[in-house]
């Protein structure tokens, strides 16, 4: 187990390096980045002060250096937590990303818990009541849930929320709490707002996971050890929840490998639609404006989020299934 963890963590480090190079190159490639715009501005202002500023910036970000030097200058600061400057917003990247990343993690985690909490009972019900009306309803909803683009669902819920509930959407806080420090009322206010993005985010995942759960449970229910449990005189609900569901969880956790990227992707896009104070809108703006240091930082952090999620999934898997522990 320890060996396994060490292997996984070292792979994570290598992945992060590769991703940082990839994203750096990707965002460096196109001409017309925000830093050049900024330098242009400074040059136009003229004067000794700005000329010095221009030189300082050019030196710091290696404007005239070849790309590998540029990368090195950037990465050696990045590992210390200095991700450079957002030239669009004129602020250091690190002052911009953490709060937004926090909300992203929070939102994704809520959605994950929500979709698991929903998909397991739904899948179990669907599998144990096969070919009944509720099973068909659940199955049809699954297809719709998977097929509906998340941004569209966000839009629909937005329309619904403002029409039916008359709730202000497109924010995580009411006006009076927006910049207030954390407190119980603020938390309650947050919870009142956060449900829309969580529901939107969870729908796709729930649909997929319910499908997996149903299929797996049907598979497991056909296994001999389920009959063994029944033949011992174990009550049916214990047979299902203790003996069958536990075994059906394995593929569900494996599915995290595909659930998490979808979740993070979904979080980005629905935050843009709902204009939430998370990574999505700022990342998009950074991309559109070629505000490269900001965009790279977001891409790296989103990838890190995914890698950590996958690591947690692996640990969970080893905990649930003793057969994995051996490897």
């Amino acid at each position: 187990m320890l060996n396994f963890l060490i292997r996984r963590v070292s792979f994570m480090v290598i992945s992060m390096i590769a991703i940082s190079i990839l994203s750096f190159v990707l965002i460096e490639l196109p001409p017309g980045s925000a830093i050049e715009v900024k330098l242009q501005q400074l040059r136009q202002q003229g004067g000794d002060m700005t000329a010095e500023q221009v030189r300082g910036l050019e030196e710091r970000y290696g404007i005239h250096d070849p790309i590998q030097v540029k990368y090195w200058k950037w990465i050696s600061r990045a590992v210390k937590g200095d991700f450079g400057q957002s030239f669009q917003l004129d602020r250091p990247v690190k002052s911009l990303i953490w709060a937004r990343l926090g909300f992203s993690v929070l939102l994704s985690s809520f959605a994950l818990v929500f979709s698991w909490g929903l998909s397991i009972p739904l899948g179990v019900y669907s599998a144990t009541h096969r070919y009944t009306l509720p099973d068909y309803v659940i199955q049809v909803l699954q297809f719709v849930g998977v097929a509906i683009p998340q941004f569209l669902l966000a839009l629909l819920l937005l329309v619904l929320a403002s029409r039916a509930f008359n709730q202000e959407v497109g924010t995580l806080f009411s006006q009076q709490f927006k910049n207030a420090p954390w407190s119980l009322p603020r938390l309650l206010d947050f919870l009142r707002h956060v449900w829309i993005p969580v529901v939107v985010l969870a729908v796709g995942g729930t649909a997929g996971l319910t499908r997996i759960m149903r299929a797996n449970l049907l598979d497991v229910l056909g296994q001999q050890y389920v009959q063994t449990a029944r033949s011992k005189g174990v009550a049916e609900h214990i047979v299902i929840w203790k003996h069958a569901v536990r075994n059906a969880l394995h593929p569900l956790i494996m599915a995290l490998g595909t659930t998490l990227p979808l979740l993070i992707s979904g979080e980005v896009i629905i935050s843009i639609v709902l204009n939430l104070p998370t990574t999505g809108p700022m990342y998009l703006q950074a991309l559109l404006n070629k505000d490269m240091y900001l965009a790279v930082a977001f891409l790296l952090m989103l990838s890190l989020m995914l890698l950590i999620g996958n690591l947690l999934a692996d640990i969970l898997l080893a905990w649930v299934d003793p057969r994995v522990r051996l490897e």
């Binding site: 050890y225 063994t228 029944r230 033949s231 003996h243 075994n247």
Partner: peptide
């Protein structure tokens, strides 16, 4: 019925590899 299963009548199966629950 459950008192009979396991208590008075019990059963063993063809496939020992799959007759025991792998996670317990």
């Amino acid at each position: 019925m459950r008192a009979i299963r396991g208590g008075h009548v019990s059963m063993i199966f063809q496939e020992p590899m799959t007759a025991l629950n792998p996670v317990y």
